[in-house]
Simulated scan of single mutants.
Amino acid sequence: MAASGSSLKSYLLVRIAMVIPTILILLTLVFLLMRVAPGNPVTAALGGHAPPAVIKELTHQLGYDRPLYQQFGLYVWHILHGNFGTTITDKRQVTEIILQNGAATLELTVAAMIVALLVGVPIGLLAGRFRDRPVDAVTRLFGVVMYAMPVFVLGLLAQILFGSILNWLPISGQASPLTTALMTTHTNILLMDAVIDGNWPAFWDVFDHLILPATTLGLVFAGVFIRLVRVNVIRTLKDDYIEAARARGIRERAVVYRHAFRNALVPVITVIGLEVALLMGGAVLTETTFNWPGIGHALYIYLENRDYAAVQGIVIVFGLVVVASSLVVDFISALIDPRMRYK
């Protein structure tokens, strides 16, 4: 038991140590990409209409006229102190954008992940259980189509069908204007704020607005889980301990659901960490399609305005979230599967 605990601790220390160079590489790449972009970021953000004196003064205030190594040092220093910069176009702190818009993105991505797991895992299990049968062919086709479908195309189709034709669900925004105006903000996560206040009409209004974007984004990534669970269920059903369970007379249903399915879920937990990065990227398109007020939508607006300072700060936060989620998933995987600690 002590050796097992020691190996887990060593594994976690190594993974945490690896985070430091990963973050440093991320910061360097984002910094260089923003600096090699053509044109002066201040001129681009102001649309080229500001007087030269104003552009020069703002360039000096932001430090863009300093040597590159000084800019990089100041940039890293600010980030270490939690300062991700100030936007050029509207003078907002990127930290403020993250706190306000990030809550909406968190709400969307968590809901989308739940949809992806609820759809992908049972269908993948079904496909693996009935391999090479008609149900397997149908579920595999569904998974391929969902994963290959661009999220904005699926979103537009959902808006047309469920919003315009059937008129079942709202197709834009995080809540109706009246709900937003009357709600008290505690966490900026509207579902949670409604629960805290016991405001159930507001809760269901926010929930209705969440259904289409979360389902759209979740279905796209459900395709990954369908294929992953299917492959691992098929592989697990060939293992010796499964054959031994069958030889002992255990019913096939119990063999599949109690033994094979449980072990097939271990790789799924690992992939969830990778899916966070894809979900964050998919959130940009989903939020833009559904006018969802998250970080992705804010990033799209700042990209349109060529506000490189805002883009730089938001992309860094995206990267840090992905690194943190990967670290958490590695810890959970090592806790569940001891073999991970010795790789």
Rank of each mutant, 00 (worst) to 15 (best):
A137Q: 06
W77F: 12
A50D: 04
A50M: 06
K56Q: 09
A111Q: 11
W77P: 03
Q70R: 10
L24W: 04
V115M: 10
P41L: 09
I55K: 02
Y64C: 00
L24A: 15
V94D: 01
G124V: 12
T89E: 07
I114G: 11
I97T: 03
I79H: 03
H81I: 09
P52N: 03
G63T: 00
V135E: 02
R35T: 02
H81C: 09
Y75K: 05
I88T: 10
L58C: 00
A50Y: 00
I25N: 00
G82K: 10
V138S: 01
G120R: 11
L26M: 13
I97H: 07
V42R: 07
A112F: 10
M113G: 12
I25S: 00
H81S: 06
T28M: 10
T86A: 02
L99I: 13
L117Q: 08
H81F: 05
L62M: 10
R129V: 03
L117R: 10
T89V: 14
I88N: 02
A104Y: 02
N40P: 03
W77E: 12
D90M: 08
L118R: 09
R92C: 05
R133G: 00
P41T: 05
F84R: 08
V138L: 14
T59L: 01
A53C: 02
G39M: 10
Y75N: 01
L46W: 07
L141P: 05
A137F: 14
A111V: 14
G47K: 02
R66D: 04
A45Y: 03
A104R: 08
P38D: 12
T89Q: 11
D132H: 13
A116F: 12
Q93P: 00
L108I: 06
L74F: 00
L99W: 15
T89W: 08
Y64H: 04
I114S: 12
T28C: 05
T109P: 08
R133V: 04
L141N: 10
R92D: 13
G47E: 12
Q71L: 07
T22Q: 04
L80A: 11
H60P: 00
L80W: 11
V138D: 01
A53E: 15
L117D: 11
L108Q: 05
A127W: 04
I123A: 14
G82Y: 10
M34C: 10
G47P: 06
R66E: 05
A37S: 13
Q70W: 10
V119A: 14
L33W: 06
T43H: 09
L29V: 15
R35D: 04
L62P: 02
E107P: 01
P41K: 03
K91I: 08
I88Y: 07
A116C: 15
G120D: 13
Q100T: 13
I25V: 14
G85Y: 07
Y64Q: 07
V30Y: 07
T139P: 08
P122H: 06
L27G: 01
T86E: 11
V30W: 01
G85Q: 05
L118V: 13
L117H: 09
L32R: 03
A53Y: 06
V30D: 02
T87K: 06
R129M: 10
P67Q: 12
T105N: 09
A111L: 15
V42K: 04
